[in-house]
Simulated assay, not measured.
Amino acid sequence: MNHPFTDFTKKQDHLVCIDSDGCAIDSMDIKHIRCFGPCMVKEWNLQTYEKEILKRWNEINLYSMTRGINRFKGLAKALKEIDSRYTQIEDVDTLVQWAEETDELSNAALQKAIASTDSSILKKALNWSEAVNEAIKQIPREDINPFAHVRESIEILHKTCDIAIVSSANYEAVKEEWTRFGLLEHVDVLLAQNAGSKKSCIEKLLTCGYKKENVLMTGDAPGDMDAAKGNGVFYYPILVSGESGSWAGILNAVERMKEGTFGGAFQEELIQTFVENLMK
């Protein structure tokens, strides 16, 4: 599983794509609250406005329709707001532009941009991202676990479906967590931050020979829904604060996909509930 797609071939007629952080693994809130936000405050010396800034960081990344946004897009959005509301962020527009225009949102892509521009804010963004990765490694293992019903659901699904992790998180972190929880043995391919966007990952998976009506994306964020819609495949949402209940219903949902009754009213109702849950 070291290189995206290299070792992957279609085995089953149906494919279930699963996001990791905040969807299968209860790690998203912990990582943002303990690592992403505080590391930004430290890197840009924002302690004066820490309480307001951290609250807004969590709104952007966890509790709104931008939940699950890529870390660099989230950083650019947060720093742009901080620049206009609280204190000047030097050269913030360079970061905003890079986050909008780059083909790949990763540390490696950022390093290439720094090599060609020598931009100070891009260097700070890389420092922040590396500090976040280091902080995540320091989270006690016992603090992060899969949501209830995840392990048994994936195990059952894998008997009749190919399983792909489709995540925008750090590859090594996803691999380590799924291995530790005994989940990776029920996965056929691991596609993380280094494999490209979720939309492009699903697009590449479809070239392996799946019919679109036999593919389902499971996620907890609007970006997961958009990746599914952008490829014409089904979306099964994991509801924030209702994750266990969502996982308890996934086997029934996949049966509906196999029977051909997932599309239409059932899909629309799932999406409506998902959006309303995030807009609370």
Rank of each mutant, 00 (worst) to 15 (best):
N2M: 06
D7Y: 05
T9M: 01
D13R: 15
V16G: 06
C17V: 08
I18H: 03
D21F: 10
D21E: 11
C23R: 04
M28D: 05
K31P: 00
H32M: 10
H32E: 14
C35R: 01
G37H: 02
G37L: 03
C39A: 11
W44N: 00
L46M: 02
T48V: 04
E50R: 13
I53G: 00
R56V: 00
W57Q: 14
E59L: 03
E59R: 06
L62G: 01
Y63I: 04
T66H: 08
G68S: 08
G68H: 15
N70R: 13
R71K: 10
K73S: 07
K73Y: 02
L75K: 09
A76Q: 05
E81H: 05
I82R: 01
D83T: 09
D83I: 08
S84F: 00
Y86I: 02
I89C: 06
E90W: 05
D91L: 01
V92S: 02
V92Q: 00
T94M: 11
L95M: 05
E100P: 01
L105I: 15
S106W: 06
A108F: 07
A109T: 11
A109F: 12
K112H: 09
A115F: 09
S116V: 15
T117V: 06
K123L: 04
S129V: 05
V132M: 05
V132I: 12
I136Y: 02
E142T: 07
N145Y: 13
N145K: 13
R151F: 08
E152V: 01
S153E: 07
S153H: 04
I154P: 10
E155T: 07
L157M: 11
T160F: 05
I163E: 02
I163A: 04
I165P: 02
I165E: 03
V166A: 06
S168Q: 09
A169H: 12
A169V: 03
N170V: 10
Y171Q: 08
E176C: 08
E176Q: 14
E176T: 12
T179L: 12
R180G: 14
R180K: 14
F181D: 03
L183K: 00
L184W: 00
D188Y: 06
L191M: 04
L191T: 03
A195P: 00
A195M: 00
G196N: 05
S197P: 12
S200F: 02
S200T: 13
C201S: 14
I202S: 08
E203I: 01
K204T: 13
K204Q: 15
L206E: 04
C208S: 14
G209Y: 06
Y210H: 13
K211I: 01
V215D: 12
V215I: 10
T218G: 08
G219V: 12
P222T: 10
P222Y: 08
G223T: 03
G223H: 14
D226S: 11
A227P: 11
A228W: 04
A228E: 01
K229Q: 14
V233P: 12
V233G: 11
F234R: 12
P237G: 02
L239I: 03
V240G: 00
S241I: 05
E243Q: 11
S244T: 10
A248L: 09
G249H: 14
I250E: 09
N252G: 12
A253V: 01
E255H: 08
E255K: 14
R256S: 09
M257K: 10
A265G: 05
Q267H: 14
Q267M: 04
Q267P: 06
T273Q: 13
T273E: 09
F274G: 03
V275P: 03
N277C: 07
L278M: 11
L278G: 01
